[in-house]
Design a protein around this nucleic acid. Structure first.
Lengths: 189, 189
DNA sequence: AATCTAAACTAACGGTTGTTAGTTTAGATT
DNA sequence: AATCTAAACTAACAACCGTTAGTTTAGATT
């Protein structure tokens, strides 16, 4: 099926445009023009505009869920689990920074799949929080507000999509390491 | 002029809707319905949809600029300057979390004022970066990549708008203190 | 009582939206 | 050579968009 190739091209182009202007501001005519075809032709490959967004977001959300499950099933200590989470965010974001923009900013425009997305997201955050609490119990992490620590780390990781494309010179492994140091050890000497 | 009151009500309502769905997805009819009037009536008070967005974003951006200037003109050491920056973000975001959503997510839909906004933002980031570098020079901050430290702190601070409204029980001063600890000292024991 | 005015209203505009229906094109398969 | 099919096309749709023009309403000022 060549159709799948073309569909992926369309989704990739849409992802780029969604990053720049947001889902709602991108029209099917914008997308078609960027592809060099007419808007109606898009419908030979995709079901709807909605369908494109769903495709972008759900596949990423499921990737995060899968990686989190691997980490939970590992026997790493809490700090190393946090380092692993950081590495996962760097990896997934490096592979598709534009898609991460949609995940972060346009999830509310999902329709049928909105509830499913929210389920995955809540589960991910719960798992993340549990790792932090576990680290506090085992005396690896300071006994401070776990909610604030979760929020701070997750905010930074969710913003990677803005930052990674601007620093193509830095390599993902090195970035994950440096980021781990800053997030886990702080900036103070 | 009573007109100013009504205008502010409209902007406040628009800010709430923009937070929920983004600027492009909110129509003037949505906004009017939320106000309990007809779309055309909005134009007795505001110039255009664009004008509302500009109003929301530019006033916030100028507030940040002004606060940053105060910090630069202070004689605090670098770590205390960082703590001050954190407190400023918590304060401004607490006062207008919905507006911060527009600042973060809809700035690209500014038209005439886009260049001005970008000038303010770049200046703010440059000043922030310079404080970090100064802290490295004076041996207060670890000699790690300042770009990564800037990115990490700024990401967390820019995400406060998502978090503050969900935690109304926490007081702003306490939040700023805890956040300062986490961002500056890290989470590791 | 007559006048003014802020703020709502109705009606409509030209343009844009996502999408469908039906048609054409050109290369691959029989 | 005849047939099939993926993928483009043109044309059009009903709905919705931001905005303007002109009118009505009701309370305050003269």
């Amino acid at each position: 099926m060549k159709k799948e190739n073309r569909k992926e091209e369309i989704i990739l182009t849409a992802t780029k445009l969604f990053k720049k202007k947001g889902y709602s501001a991108v029209t099917m005519r914008d997308l078609a023009k960027e592809m060099g075809i007419k808007a109606a032709s898009l419908y030979n490959h995709i079901k709807s505009k909605q369908d494109i967004l769903t495709n972008i977001i759900i596949s990423l959300a499921e990737e995060f869920t899968s990686e989190m499950n691997d980490i939970l099933n590992s026997d790493l200590n809490s700090i190393d689990k946090l380092n692993k989470i950081i590495a996962v965010h760097v990896k997934i974001t490096s592979n598709n920074p534009n898609g991460m923009a949609s995940l972060n900013n346009d999830w509310m425009h999902l329709e049928e799949k909105l509830d499913y997305y929210l389920t995955l997201r809540t589960k991910y955050e719960d798992d993340f929080r549990e790792i932090i609490k576990q680290g506090i119990s085992s005396n690896e992490i300071i006994d401070s507000n776990p909610e604030i620590m979760l929020f701070s780390m997750l905010s930074t990781l969710r913003s990677l999509y803005l930052w990674i494309p601007k620093k193509e010179d830095i390599n993902p492994t090195e970035l994950a390491n440096n980021l781990g140091l800053v997030l886990i050890n702080g900036v103070k000497k």
